[in-house]
Design a protein around this nucleic acid. Structure first.
Lengths: 334, 334
DNA sequence: TTGTATGCGTTATCAC
DNA sequence: GTGATAACGCATACAA
């Protein structure tokens, strides 16, 4: 490790024949420096390959120019081929790149991981925290918010904490989907619901219930956890309990994908016998057999919006929750 | 922002009736502190909710306890439903969690992003850098390595830089797959190759060429870029040029998935008329129609190994490249 | 074993 | 407009 000594402000100052303070001003874009001097400093910086030491800067500014994205999901489940988390990460990374800040990723599946996140974030080692996909009533977002740490969640916090959030219009999206089924003449519409300890699961089920009840139709419900396996199980259960069903709304594309296969195995044709609609619009949705009609949620936008809100919050602005629109993508399964 | 003043070492020291130095020793687990004093300090830490300021610590230790994972892929492509990147992220996160270090994610699709990564990492703002999926002959890993910054790549660097890396056994995996096709009696075996500016693309094609040539069969090659669209295009091209082909090895599951559909559209039955094998074993592979036979690569392991190597490198150990084994998963497509 | 003193590289508050 | 100089919070060489 031939760790070449990194040039400091001091070195640049000497080379440019000015004081440290002046170099600091130039580096930070202060407008109160004469142009010739500024130019000289710039040259010295370039020649020496000077790069500011972030630790030293943070120590005095009390800022770290980095924000944490916490994925409290069990680590093993976070990155299945669900594209939700990758999408949020990507959106956040894009937005932070524009703000020249760093993204610190924290997986907090285990209780130990949860503690670690709490220590790290309460220790002000980041300027703000993004929470993705909360399970149950996680008290952490609320706690951080009360400590004055900027926090933004994806989805309304279930514990009722007054924490800013960005969400997609689950209820509206599902309502549109179910109405599409009704318009297609379907009358025995079932749903494979998502986990009922997550906002997304709860609200998508609510959207289904509302619409189906409004139409005077019965609720046919089985519950999964967004994964393919759970979708297959739920589909089998629905088929057993309601053999006459003619449509299924699945709360995730993964579950819809499994439903498609399960229906085929059961000898039902899609969409002729049973129409199927999913939720997410992951890339695979266009490649299923038949291609999946689904509710698209703007997942990268979600990540971007969360980040934008967080940055404004960190800048001291007051912010309001944001709800992003969803869109029905009609393919061949319904 | 009622930013409650965070307690410092000084505060803990006063409360425990000892000096800052002693508190520092206890906090850092030094063994040279008497048990009673240590206990008193521990209590004071707990009572005050003291959390060390990482910036201050980094400033003096010259360590940051965080490492960067650089994804030099164009941001738009990084998170398709390919599971390679998420898998590497997950592996790295797991391993770092054990080491109590943070993962800083850097997307470097644009040239500007590339510069940003260079500034950030050469500026020693992280203890080491992980590179995933290099395109072309990126000079950055080699440059960082020469600067004495610990670096580990996924895949052998194409510019021949002497940088430690972890890779999977592409050649061996593909050879096994092609031999499986030969054993099945296939004689007109085509391949949809990956991009030839990436190690994975190059080596998987080499594995195909070796094996097919060894068997005295012709090489039937079309090239894609690992995505579904490119896979569909390549499949159509192969079908046009070699209508008599009876098997296809695709260098990614995504391309294999598209090939499956393209073949069906062309009226070919899989595996009866044409056998298909993919590479990756993404989750979707088990759900394609028919389920995809594929070469599984241990992608999470890749992320873990890279991280483990990096940590050892940062600790001053000398390390050797690692090559992880692949495994043929036989389903119904071949 | 414990305390004292110093420095890490910045930014910010002053004078000039 | 520019330059000293004092923090920022911690780890550590050295003294006791």
């Amino acid at each position: 490790m031939t760790t070449a000594q990194r040039p400091t402000l001091e070195a640049v100052a000497r080379r440019a024949g000015v004081s440290r303070a002046t170099v600091s001003r130039v580096v930070n874009g202060s407008m109160t420096v004469a142009e010739p001097i500024r130019e000289a400093v710039r040259r010295a910086v370039a020649e020496l390959g000077y790069v500011p030491n972030l630790a030293a800067r943070s120590l005095v500014t009390q800022r770290t120019d980095s924000i944490a994205l916490v994925l409290p999901e069990a680590a093993t489940r976070v990155f299945s081929d669900d594209q939700v988390f990758p999408g949020i990460i990507r959106g956040a990374a894009q937005e932070l790149e524009a703000a020249d800040k760093q993204l610190v990723l924290m997986l907090a599946g285990s209780p130990a991981g949860h503690d670690r996140v709490e220590r790290y974030t309460t220790g002000r080692h980041v300027d703000g925290v993004l929470f993705a996909s909360l399970h149950g009533e996680d008290p952490l977002p609320g706690r951080l918010a009360r400590l004055g740490i900027p926090v933004v969640c994806s989805g309304r916090p279930l514990d009722g904490a007054d924490v800013p959030y960005v969400d997609v219009d689950h209820v509206g999206g599902v309502a549109t989907a179910v109405r599409h089924l009704l318009d297609g003449g379907r009358r025995r519409i079932a749903t494979i619901a998502g986990p009922q300890d997550m906002v997304a699961g709860i609200e998508r089920l609510a959207g289904y219930r509302n619409t189906v009840t409004e139409a005077g139709l019965p609720e046919l419900v089985a519950t999964g956890d967004f994964t393919r396996e759970s979708g297959a199980t739920a589909m089998r259960q629905l088929l057993a309990e309601h053999p006459d069903l003619d449509a299924v709304f699945a709360a995730s594309d993964l579950m819809a994908h499994a439903a498609l296969r399960t229906l085929r195995e059961a000898g039902r044709r899609v969409p002729d016998d049973v129409a199927v609609i999913g939720f997410d619009d992951i890339e695979t949705a266009a490649y299923t057999e038949p291609p999946l009609t689904t509710v698209r949620q703007p997942i990268v936008q979600l990540g971007r919006q969360m980040t934008r809100l967080l940055l404004r919050l960190a800048a001291g602005e007051a912010i309001e929750p944001v709800v992003l629109p969803t869109e029905l993508i009609v393919r061949e399964s319904a």
